[in-house]
C-alpha cells in the first residue's frame, strides 16, 4: 500500500491510501478525486490521466515506456521530466509518499 497525495490544479490536496497492484490513476478514480479523467480506463490510449510528478519522485518511479512517452509528447503542456500518465504507474510500497499535481486541463 502507498499513501499518495493528489493535488488539484486549484491547490486542493487529497491524501489517500492506494492498494498495491492498482495504478495511480485508479487511486484517483476510486476515491472520486477530480482532475484525472482517464477516458480510456487505463489503456494508454487517451492521455487524459496526465499529471506532473513531484520533482523529488521523478527519479524514483519506473521509467516511461515508448508508448507513454509518445502519448505525453502531445498531451496538454507536457513537462519533459515531470509528466506521467497515471494509468501507467503501478502502485507498490515503494510509492509511499508519492505526490502528483494535476494539469490545468487534460486535453
Amino acid at each position: 500500500m502507498a499513501r499518495i497525495t493528489y493535488v488539484e490544479f486549484n491547490g486542493t490536496e487529497h491524501v489517500v491510501d492506494v492498494a498495491n497492484g492498482m495504478t495511480v490513476m485508479e487511486g484517483a478514480r476510486d476515491n472520486g478525486i477530480p482532475g484525472i479523467e482517464a477516458d480510456c480506463g487505463g489503456a494508454c490510449a487517451c492521455s487524459t490521466c496526465h499529471v506532473y510528478v513531484d520533482s523529488a519522485w521523478v527519479e524514483k518511479l519506473p521509467a516511461r515506456d515508448a508508448m507513454e512517452e509518445d502519448m505525453l509528447d502531445f498531451a496538454y503542456e507536457p513537462d519533459a521530466e515531470r509528466s506521467r500518465l497515471t494509468c501507467q504507474i503501478k502502485v507498490s510500497d515503494d510509492l509511499d509518499g508519492l505526490k502528483v499535481f494535476m494539469p490545468e486541463k487534460q486535453i
Binding site: 494508454c44 492521455s47 508508448m67 509518445d70 502519448m71 509528447d73 502531445f74 498531451a75
Partner: peptide, 11 residues
C-alpha cells in the same frame, strides 16, 4: 503503434 500520429491527428 504510433501514438504520436493519433495525438497529432486528433489535435
Amino acid at each position: 503503434n504510433d501514438p504520436r500520429a493519433f495525438m497529432l491527428g486528433k489535435r
